[in-house]
């Protein structure tokens, strides 16, 4: 098996596409802005999932501000890439990305979770422009992506399907049903990304229901596996490039991340999985994030 595992050093050399410092700096800025947006949304609403938004900020930034072929003016443009947020509880950061990309007005973010809002607690494909599929109950993304992947093949379309899953989510049996499906039909048009922050709702994944050996699991399901630092925009982009060049099987990018990344007191704390910050905590969090950006 010609699995490419990108260790954090190895990715530097080789034949990887070069991404400019400028682009990477911009995508890091975007990621930071998304963190601030998501936290503000969660704070104002008094509800949401900060930990899992902060852990996938670079991934969402790289996808929405560079990688995905999408057109905010035409959310249903036929040739667009499809993205499914399988870990639908991270809706705040996706809504922020959609708004920042112009799918709807940034002010609409304030309506999140309010009566008559197009922004539901979890993503709803029928209400929100740019939401490909309704999610919120964990585990659905990969099997739905398989259906989309089969459709793309029947239609002879070249666009790709990206999904973002949580690591805790991968404890769900349906994920592996979807994995078998994608590999049976060699759906190389699918790239699954896993936000491997090792924290779920009740605590650490490795204590609640260990996933390791995780890479071997995916390899044995016949996936191309790429392992990266999920907070490195450059590694994310290069890993996405790698999976685009795989033509005989689906791919998974295992992105090592830190739950709550960027806010010191939220990092690696299951407590911050689904808790909104109070006034003081919010102020401190934003100070840290703004400081990081300027520093």
């Amino acid at each position: 098996m010609n699995t490419i595992i990108l260790s954090f050093d190895k990715i530097e050399g080789g034949s990887m596409k070069h991404y400019s410092k400028k682009l990477i700096a911009r995508l890091n800025d975007n990621a930071n802005q998304l963190r601030i947006d998501a936290l503000r949304m969660i704070y104002e609403r008094g509800a949401g999932h900060p930990g899992g938004c902060l852990s996938c900020s670079e991934i969402i930034s790289a996808l929405y501000f560079h990688y995905l072929k999408i057109d905010p003016q035409r959310p249903h443009w036929e040739d667009r890439d499809r993205f499914i947020l399988s870990k639908g509880h991270a809706s705040a950061i996706l809504y922020a990305a959609l708004a920042r990309r112009g799918f709807f007005d940034i002010k609409e973010l304030q309506t999140w979770g309010h009566p008559n809002s197009r922004l539901q607690g979890h993503p709803d494909r029928l209400r929100t422009p740019g939401i490909e599929m309704t999610t919120g109950t964990l585990g659905q993304g990969l099997s739905i992506a398989s259906g989309i992947g089969l459709a793309a093949r029947l239609l002879q379309q070249k666009w790709r399907i990206y999904i973002l899953m949580g690591d805790g989510e991968c404890q769900s049996g349906i994920v592996w049903e979807g994995a078998m499906m994608a590999s049976k039909y060699c759906l190389s048009n699918i790239t699954a990304i896993i936000d491997y922050n090792d924290v779920q709702l009740d605590g650490f994944c490795h204590e609640i229901m260990p996933l390791e050996p995780f890479i071997k699991k995916w390899q044995s399901f016949n996936f191309e596996v790429v392992e990266i630092d999920g907070h490195s925009v450059k590694e994310i982009l290069q890993a996405l490039d790698v999976t685009k060049e795989i033509h005989d099987r689906p791919s998974v990018i295992i992105a090592h991340t830190i739950k709550g990344k960027g806010v010191s007191f939220m990092e690696n704390e299951a407590k911050w999985h689904g808790l909104a910050p109070d006034d003081e905590q919010y102020r401190q969090a934003i100070t840290e994030l703004k400081g990081e950006k300027n520093g």
Partner: peptide
Amino acid sequence: ERFFNVGIAEQCLVNVGAGLSLEGFIP
């Protein structure tokens, strides 16, 4: 070519149908 057997995986069965329908097929 328009027939897909998911094996004994009923949850996957339904979601594969949902995915196909998102692209305009009638599963």
